[in-house]
Design a protein around this nucleic acid. Sequence first.
DNA 1: CGACTGTAGATTGTCAACAATAAACGATCA
DNA 2: TGATCGTTTATTGTTGACAATCTACAGTCG
Lengths: 230, 230
Amino acid sequence: MAAPEELFVLEGRPTAQLIADQLREQIIQGTFRPGEQINESVLATQLRTSRGPVREALQRLCQEGILISRRNRGVFVLELATADIKEIYAVRETVELAAADALLNEGRARVRATCEALKAVLRDMAKQVAVSDWQALARLDMDFHSTLVAGAGNTRLIRIYNTLAAESRMCILSLEVSYPRIDVLVQEHQNILDLLEEGDREGLHKAIKRHMEKGVEDLIATRQEAGNKP
Amino acid sequence: MAAPEELFVLEGRPTAQLIADQLREQIIQGTFRPGEQINESVLATQLRTSRGPVREALQRLCQEGILISRRNRGVFVLELATADIKEIYAVRETVELAAADALLNEGRARVRATCEALKAVLRDMAKQVAVSDWQALARLDMDFHSTLVAGAGNTRLIRIYNTLAAESRMCILSLEVSYPRIDVLVQEHQNILDLLEEGDREGLHKAIKRHMEKGVEDLIATRQEAGNKP
DNA sequence: CGACTGTAGATTGTCAACAATAAACGATCA
DNA sequence: TGATCGTTTATTGTTGACAATCTACAGTCG
């Protein structure tokens, strides 16, 4: 009997992780607002499950840092202050620079494979720019960077970055008005891709740093316009 | 009535975290060996609690990466391969370099405060060298580096590093024979401290890189002698 | 003798009921 | 009128029982 590509995997993954993934996406997309409380019981009822798995999922997200737990009070969606934005982007810059370096040291084959993946992301991004789907753009923006980091092949670096990516999407979301400079969004990422493909280490470093600086500036500027927390 | 420094905080922290902390320390110290299975029920019985909190604690350590969970099989203590060691030290180097940079940018006051904390750690380290307490030395080694990273004041960086520190202690432990080059252990850290105090950014970078390189070399060399996993 | 199948044991995964805790409200007293 | 102290209520923290799942072993059939 010929083996089928993938036999219908009957809920192969742990339930708690399914819940966590779903919840994370909802938080990042703004279904739950920053500061909002998440009730275990009602969530369990909605998901047709018991509090056990829900509790596990919530705890997981707490450890990721996008929820905060107050003992005997409940879990709440993280509220990001300006200091958090600076922190997140500072660490992102560090991780991405390290990943870029490591990737370039891995050799051309690895670089080329990563570039192909990045190009696919950029194609999707261009499509979404055309229809101005902010949610999708925020996701693809992070996909691009996550893919870049993944190229380095360091599993711990990847794990660290995924958390940062989730937090970044929360930052972007909290603006609501979303991306300024949408016109240069694809262009900036394309620039990073080109420099990577050329193997221009120095240029790549500068581009990533500049990209992050701009990101922080935009976020903080837009936030101050909105009169949000300092 | 004068307020006492700290009124006996009656189990103020969540139980699961207490269990997780205790368990983490035991794993790092080698009470549980790499690859060993940890049974929820028996652990719950030993701790005079139920499986719920234990389960939460285990999940937490899974997410930290020092335990791995296999669905319907159980959780096992992480077994570190040589590739893991390289990964861990590569990320540690990245994080520490970033932290050192950030710290130097924070200004002299912050640097001086951090140096004081580091000196205290070094004093303890010298004491333990005298009595050759390997466990304590491994802990103090990591304390030194964690303190350095903490000096930068980036909470996310600190959280990331703490996990790496735990994994590093597992690496060191797995050698069992423990630290080679004990004579230069204090000296190397003192060197890093001196360069930080002088504000010698370039020298500090080089020292940290060299420190990490040596660490990996020692670990891998000792491991190969022991004929362990490649 | 080898491969397959069915059963047994152990372990995690899930659940619903119970207990503990903290904030919010309202009553009581100076 | 103001503050303090019980009471209420909603929520999480904890527990023990039950169900689902995996591995290992033994029995059976070719």
